[in-house]
């Protein structure tokens, strides 16, 4: 699957609308480009990988495929909580292949007009926002747009020391 287009990366924010999946982490709303989302599954058994980063929950069996799973709360610095019946794994296609993201609940799919989206720095200046590529101001709430490649860095950088040790 092709890498999702992020027009916002370089040339500011798009004038057109964005088609996104909105989900919750604790009480906050986040969104992922719908193009990147492969599917959404219920919480299932995850096998921990010893020695992996704290935000890597482990690997899971998605119909015969081994898929790494990231706890998005931990990754985004949101205080962690218990899994509930609402907890879901959002399976996305990243440059590193399929990855599962654990979220607290998936709320809806929505089209957000480009003019409602602002760069993250305009609102949350000073906060570590490499994971975000924009904030959408909806009538009743704010939605943070996740930058997938920022959340899931390339393996080569993060694990260079590990592979050398092996």
């Amino acid at each position: 699957m092709a890498r999702p287009e992020h027009a916002a990366d370089t040339a500011g924010l798009p004038a057109s609308e964005e088609h996104v999946v909105i989900f919750k982490l604790a009480d906050e709303y986040y969104a992922l480009d719908i193009q990147a989302v492969q599917e959404i599954v219920r919480m299932q058994t995850i096998t921990a990988i010893p020695g992996a980063d704290y935000w890597v929950e482990g690997i899971t069996n998605l119909r015969g495929r081994v898929v790494p799973v990231v706890d998005l709360r931990k990754r985004c610095g949101v205080p962690s909580g218990e899994y509930t019946p609402e907890t879901r794994i959002v399976v996305v296609n990243s440059v590193n292949g399929m990855v599962g993201l654990i979220v607290d609940a998936v709320s809806e799919v929505m089209r957000i007009p480009g003019e409602q989206i602002e760069p993250p720095s305009a609102i949350v200046a000073g906060v570590d926002n490499v994971y975000l590529r924009g904030i959408a101001k909806l009538e009743d709430r704010l939605v943070s747009l996740i930058d997938l490649e920022g959340v899931l860095p390339a393996a080569v950088e993060e694990y260079a020391d590990v592979s050398r040790a092996a």
Partner: peptide, 27 residues
């Protein structure tokens, strides 16, 4: 034998994962 995937990359002491009889994964 199944690969752990690019995101997890080469890990010390592990060459991959395998699917167990109950559908969960072993390393």
């Amino acid at each position: 034998v199944k690969s752990l995937g690019d995101m997890l990359g080469a890990r010390k002491g592990l060459t991959g994962a395998t699917i167990l009889g109950d559908g969960t994964l072993g390393l």
